[in-house]
Design a protein around this nucleic acid. Structure first.
Lengths: 224, 224
DNA sequence: TGAAAAACAGGTATTTATACCTATGCTATT
DNA sequence: AATAGCATAGGTATAAATACCTGTTTTTCA
């Protein structure tokens, strides 16, 4: 198996971890880090401006979802799959959450790794993604299988633990009601509605209602 | 990466192919064929009676489904996953059918290979399945992703005469960009963006962006 | 060639949404 | 008994979206 040099990109907001990864990759001479970024939005911009694009992009999933001005790792994955399908996306995450994995794979990620994996697995995963187009380990496969099997018809209950009340408000939001109107409908304060909305934004990693609507549709909380 | 000897099993009704596989595996001394069978039912029987079980079981998917007294490859996979979950099932098939793959993976197969793959890939797949618990190549992953993503059926655009520019702005809006950001991206004024948005609201009969997003999804202007 | 539509830009004003706080009563779990 | 999550409600800000206006320029097309 020949291993030509793989052009790497790293998307990671924590500079320490980013430099750490770079250092690790530099130990082997068949990895060349030619691209790096600290946040999701600049990734797309930078990629559009450069002719030299990475073969494999390591993306930190934990790109801050609490900061709504940023892409979440999932959103970035979606954007990358659409705009730069030739770039292989390998997601790094601290989450061991089934739903995160499956959402990512569904939306175009080529591989998934938890951050506490064996270092050698990173090399392995990068090479696999580069040469074969994908890397799925058994843990991820199990998640995929699980998510596919429990999909009987109308059953939802996937992704992010939305509380019943939050779901209720999400539904009404998707019906184009304003916070005021929702408050009136539910006999609660506008403040409370806004509180729930803010929680929803954080939980779903959205920047605004647009993201909430898409989330709701993806998760069958509202029908099309 | 250490490679201890892997105990192999082969389930294949065509004796010629079975012997062929055995011969290939014998070329490498880290594969030890300790189990073989020509049909599905006897596999379960034999496995129940022996204490020496294979680590990896190569299963030919084309096990005859016309004979109702036989397991099909799929049924066998299901039975194996239930009774012997510790045995890794690597499916070999002539079919390149998405649905076959996904059904198998859903039901517990640890890997999928088409028979005309490169011989070296068989070794690779066996080792991967044994050591990491799974083997999915890019072709299979694509099938999995394809089967999981709910795709809209109607390809044509109906409803409302949205201008190209409006559609552009609608797309970006759905990607959670604010009017400011869209203006910056398109090198136009925020006023213009808002003008387009207002036109969109009127044309689509929406009250706010929520309605725009739903319209965009319904009309395939954006993908889910 | 003349009318219509599209893209563009600007204004003023109000309404909504979002960010970031605190805080309390309730319930389930450990 | 302490912890955690939820639903509730409040405050103070700013950012963004929406509602109506006015225009100019270019393109498209009947």
């Amino acid at each position: 198996m020949m291993e030509s040099t793989i052009k790497m990109g790293i998307v990671e907001d924590q500079i320490l971890f980013r430099e750490g990864i770079k250092a690790i990759l530099k130990q082997r001479d068949n990895f060349d880090v030619i691209f790096e970024s600290a946040d999701g939005f600049s990734v797309i911009d930078k990629l559009e401006k450069t002719p030299l694009r990475p073969d494999v992009l390591l993306v930190d999933l934990s790109l801050p979802p609490q900061n709504k001005k940023e892409y979440s790792g999932l959103q970035l994955t979606i954007a990358l799959a659409e705009k730069f399908p030739e770039i292989k996306v390998l997601v790094l995450s601290v989450h061991n959450d089934e739903n995160f994995m499956t959402e990512l794979i569904k939306n175009g990620a080529h591989g998934y790794l938890v951050k506490d994996c064996d270092p050698s697995e990173i090399f392995e995963a990068i090479v696999a993604v580069f040469e074969k187009g994908s890397y799925i380990n058994s843990r991820t496969l199990k998640a995929l299988q699980g998510s596919m099997i429990k999909k009987p018809k109308h059953g939802k209950k996937l992704l992010a633990n939305i509380s019943p009340r939050e779901e209720e408000i999400l539904k009404l939001t998707c019906q184009q009601f304003t916070a005021d109107e929702i408050a009136e409908k539910l006999f609660i304060s506008v403040k409370t509605v806004n509180g729930h909305r803010n929680n929803l934004l954080i939980k779903t990693g959205s920047r605004n209602v647009t993201g909430l609507v898409i989330f709701a549709i993806r998760n069958n909380i509202v029908q099309l």
